[in-house]
Design a protein around this nucleic acid. Sequence first.
DNA 1: TTGTAGGCGTTATCAG
DNA 2: CTGATAACGCCTACAA
Lengths: 336, 336
Amino acid sequence: MARKPNTSVSIADVAKVAGVSAQTVSRVANGSEAVRPATKKRVLAAMDQLGYRPSFAARSLRAGRYHIVGLAMPSNISSAGRRIQFENIAAAAADHQYALTLVQINKKELSLTEASRRMESLPVDGQILGLGMEPYDFESFVPPSSIPTVLISQRTHPLCATVSNNQMGCGADIVNYLMNKGHREIRFAGGRREAPANIGRYAGWVQAMQDNGLPIQDPLFGDWTADSGYRMGTILARDKSCTAIFVANDTMAVGVIYALREAGIRVPEDVSVIGVDDSMVGVIPRLELSSYRFNDERVGSVAFDLATNPPAEDLEMPHILVPGTLVERSTVAPPR
Amino acid sequence: MARKPNTSVSIADVAKVAGVSAQTVSRVANGSEAVRPATKKRVLAAMDQLGYRPSFAARSLRAGRYHIVGLAMPSNISSAGRRIQFENIAAAAADHQYALTLVQINKKELSLTEASRRMESLPVDGQILGLGMEPYDFESFVPPSSIPTVLISQRTHPLCATVSNNQMGCGADIVNYLMNKGHREIRFAGGRREAPANIGRYAGWVQAMQDNGLPIQDPLFGDWTADSGYRMGTILARDKSCTAIFVANDTMAVGVIYALREAGIRVPEDVSVIGVDDSMVGVIPRLELSSYRFNDERVGSVAFDLATNPPAEDLEMPHILVPGTLVERSTVAPPR
DNA sequence: TTGTAGGCGTTATCAG
DNA sequence: CTGATAACGCCTACAA
């Protein structure tokens, strides 16, 4: 029922009613000092009467800026890690009086180029591309010169700033933590093999185990769900030398713990378990799962800053990995 | 480091390089037929060379429309229900080639008026206000005449279209379902007392129990967490006549089940349990929780439609309650 | 097939 | 303190 596009009242309409020039209305609209109180009052009255609202389009046209950042994300925003990141980017934007425009990427074939193209037609001053699974054109992507571009990625990119949680650091931190507790036989129960988050955490585990001269047993991999954790748990339950298990997320960690307990293995008395994401708080009664919490707030604010305040073009592109923190709870203890 | 606002290349720049008029460039940019191939080629080359991107501001200024809808939500977007709704609104927008601009409302005092005011300064053709806890100015809110406004609310509003999941229907559906299984002693274990979702589900329970002449025992209330569910479960475990429990969300339902089982009460053999939200899939190993799933996709698409395609002003404001569906799993069985 | 004029709503600038 | 003018980038309407 196409109603008329914009019956919007312009500054000129207000000016006419108030009996002043358009410029004066503009001054009032922008809170200029240089308007006589009486005039100001008349203008405000006219605005009110007409229901004046400044045109975003006209203002941006003049200003050349929008005060909006764009965010591209895959359609399944609510998946564990991503939704929090999303929320924190939104918060960072709000803190700076920016709005956030979301572009959902539905296609199976995630492409930075395509996401960026969609963004180019929108009113954004900068863009943040957070396309989880590494897009196939990651290497070859050339950001538009007119929009500062930030990628949420663990990998560096020659032409774009990049930010990410430090997944490798997470893996290493967890190993070191368990080692300091006295563990040596630390197993890795991962998520989806090809997921970047999984790859990073796994790499951190391998690295730290090697650095510390600890024995590296074959890792297991699941699909991030509790059931897959349970399956891995039944296997690990038969591993008699294992004293600690590093599970790549909390959901799977719960599954692992169920399986261990069913096999008569106590947690943490017999085997320690630690997860990642700190996502189970309040979800399972009286489960005090040790975990690793990422600093998504920081990732969000860094991404926002880089998108709105890009580094000089000739400099090296920043690559920022944000560390998280270990949350000690009761599923980890020294080995028997 | 305020770089120059917009070093953006305009249609005129392209025109100069291509040796044509601005109008011709415009034609090419909009895929007009009436351009000689050779000319078109030259223009495209010039565009490419200069990195031309059409100005959103200028286009909207002319068109009087933005192809963007605004969404206001409280900052804790990730809370169970809300994030899914958010996701589905975003999806509906994407389906229609609209972008979605998010405005986060941080304040404790949620106000429709304030949310709307922030929206007025943004490039949106319509707005969806989804401020969970009923805002204090719900009754008195007057939407701006220039922006079609949709509220996500179970209540009707005199001046705005409203959409929501049918919480009361949910409550009634669950009672009827359990009753058809043969249950009469159906208890209600709710969430936060004052939460609209809780109030709706509770009201549906009361209504359906009354309509069917079933005995209404005192309801219990928690805070949506598993631990609060557990506490309610310990109380319900002592209720010998109870044969079925309607828990207002899945997280609490898990807590209830834990408590029952610890008290030696089997689920579903002794007592049936059903939750709401269908949010525990894949989270707890081998838990097959019966639940009620809302149709957030529909809520999202209806909200979007109403925001972009508002009803004529003189008509009654639409109030749409979207029903969900029961998901039968293994925590419900006929009573002993 | 291509070009010219005008205006969308705003604000910077300069004149009064 | 207030007003006139011009320009931001684009597109509709009309003219060539």
